[in-house]
């Protein structure tokens, strides 16, 4: 006896075609979202440019992010800090007017967080910007990427070879590679970074 499943399959062909198209669409939709709306460089309430501040004007990072050297978090400058300069500088630009409206309304600027770590990770800026870390050649850019070239902050990660990879979020490898490279004391013990 010779039974063929081909006729049976043939009957399924339209369904397979629809399923295949659905799947293809899924991929396209996923890709489109990841490409055009990656969320790795969100639009901020004020178009603040690190390129102008840190790049062209060479303002040191810790002039504004003052907490970095003494706290776990680098800190975002208070509105008053921005106003401190901008009541004199470039006061007529639309973005600065926006800033001044926040200031006059005594409202904080709802900046959107770009670089984020999971809640189970303990990371302290203090230790990583200490004199010891700087001597080892670790700078803010080592993790945050070439911020001074960015108009809008974008998620950047660093590969083993030192090249920057845009839109790649931080993962544990980034920390571990660096800890290994610099032979950090107990740098690969889980409880050094996990909490």
């Amino acid at each position: 006896m010779n039974v063929s499943i081909v006729p049976g399959l043939r009957a399924l062909r339209p369904a397979a075609l629809v399923g295949g198209t659905l799947f293809l669409g899924l991929l396209v939709g996923y890709w489109a979202n990841a490409t055009w709306y990656p969320g790795t460089s969100p639009e901020q309430p004020i178009e603040f440019s690190h390129r102008i501040h840190a790049g062209e004007n060479e303002i040191p990072c810790m002039y504004c992010h003052t907490q970095a050297r003494r706290s776990i978090s680098a800190g975002v400058p208070s509105v008053s800090k921005c106003v401190g300069c901008h009541k004199e500088i470039a006061t007529e630009r639309p973005q600065i007017r926006k800033l001044m409206s926040y200031w006059q309304n005594e409202e904080p600027i709802p900046w959107i967080k770009v670089h984020d770590l999971p809640d189970f990770v303990h990371f302290t800026h203090k230790r990583h910007v200490s004199a010891y870390a700087r001597a080892a050649g670790i700078e803010c850019q080592t993790c945050h990427g070439p911020v001074e070239t960015m108009d809008r902050i974008r998620v950047t990660s660093r590969a083993i070879d030192g090249s920057f990879q845009l839109d790649t979020p931080w993962e544990m490898g980034l920390c571990l590679n660096c800890h290994r490279q610099h032979q950090v004391e107990h740098g690969t013990d889980c409880w050094t970074c996990h909490k």
């Binding site: 629809v18 399923g19 198209t21 659905l22 799947f23 293809l24 669409g25 899924l26 991929l27 396209v28 939709g29 996923y30 890709w31 489109a32 979202n33 990841a34 709306y37 969320g39 969100p42 975002v76 400058p77 208070s78 509105v79 008053s80 926040y102 200031w103 005594e106 409202e107 904080p108 600027i109 709802p110 900046w111 959107i112 967080k113 984020d116 979020p169």
Partner: peptide, 28 residues
């Protein structure tokens, strides 16, 4: 089917994205 797929794919990616968090500074 294709449109449904594109939509579903879009929202799939959207749903697994890290939620947007804010960094609220002080005024002073």
């Amino acid at each position: 089917a294709g449109s449904v797929g594109v939509g579903a794919g879009f929202y799939l990616r959207e749903s697994i994205k890290h939620p947007m968090e804010h960094l609220i500074p002080h005024v002073v």
